[in-house]
Amino acid sequence: MTLRFSRTTFAAMAALAIGFGPAIAEPVDDELVVNEELTITTKAAAAPHLDGHMSEVYSGWLFRTDETRAMQMDDFDNPMFIYVERGAEAWTTAEGTEGKACADCHGALEEGMKGVRAAMPKVNAAGALWSMEDYINDCRTNRMGAEALKWNSNEMKDMTSAISLQSRGMPVNVAIDGPAAEFWERGKEIYYTRFGQLEMSCASCHEENYGNNIRADHLSQGQTNGFPLYRLKDGAAVSIHQRFVGCVRDTRAETFAAGSQEFRELELYVASRGMGLDIEGVAVRP
């Protein structure tokens, strides 16, 4: 007997010999309708660049329990709306030496910020890849004369939440070609790199094992369309990069910092894996 199996051979063997293989449990069959009026696409055919990796993409919402899913179906039950409300207020509040508010340049939040979240992160005029946090801080420091907000501060999450909500129900729409291509390629490389003492990549959990359980956690595809989102376990909003930090740390690796070039590139690549899904603009997760 030779001991070196490929994973698929092994799975087939295990299924034959002992009656079960690693089960790919399906995400739930449910539809996300918010406030009984807005239907959000949580399941879609995978984008062509995922050929050979995945055929369908699913929002993390489909992997959660009935109770957690329900919290996202009504804005009154969604704890993220505390952040959204504070962010909407900050939108019209003048700050900094120029005495300007966001609204003075961008107009109403609902119009000025429509679709912005769906296209993030994106390459700026100077050719750098920026996340929404970078754009917010650029306005604050260069146009308002205000201080930059810390990446994971409540004030930053207030603003990213209020802006993300304006793309709710719009499909993820990141550019991955042209000037974005090199960033996307590097993000993809990070996604498949097996980091840390546990030698696990993002794909180890979110591509090869979504639907399975790792201890108490039901693994999703690790999509970012729901961010920023409320994490019940933390009792607080969580940013995309904050989630990346946690996932990399859990491989017993030295993480990258929130806001780092690496995480912006990873953010672009992971966002592109969610093409076809709608922005949930402030989701709820366990």
């Binding site: 980091f195 840390g196 003492q197 030698e199 690796a253 030295e254």
Partner: peptide, 13 residues
Amino acid sequence: FIRPGDAYTGKAA
């Protein structure tokens, strides 16, 4: 390992 960490601290090993 690639970027080994110090257990689950997120810091370098």
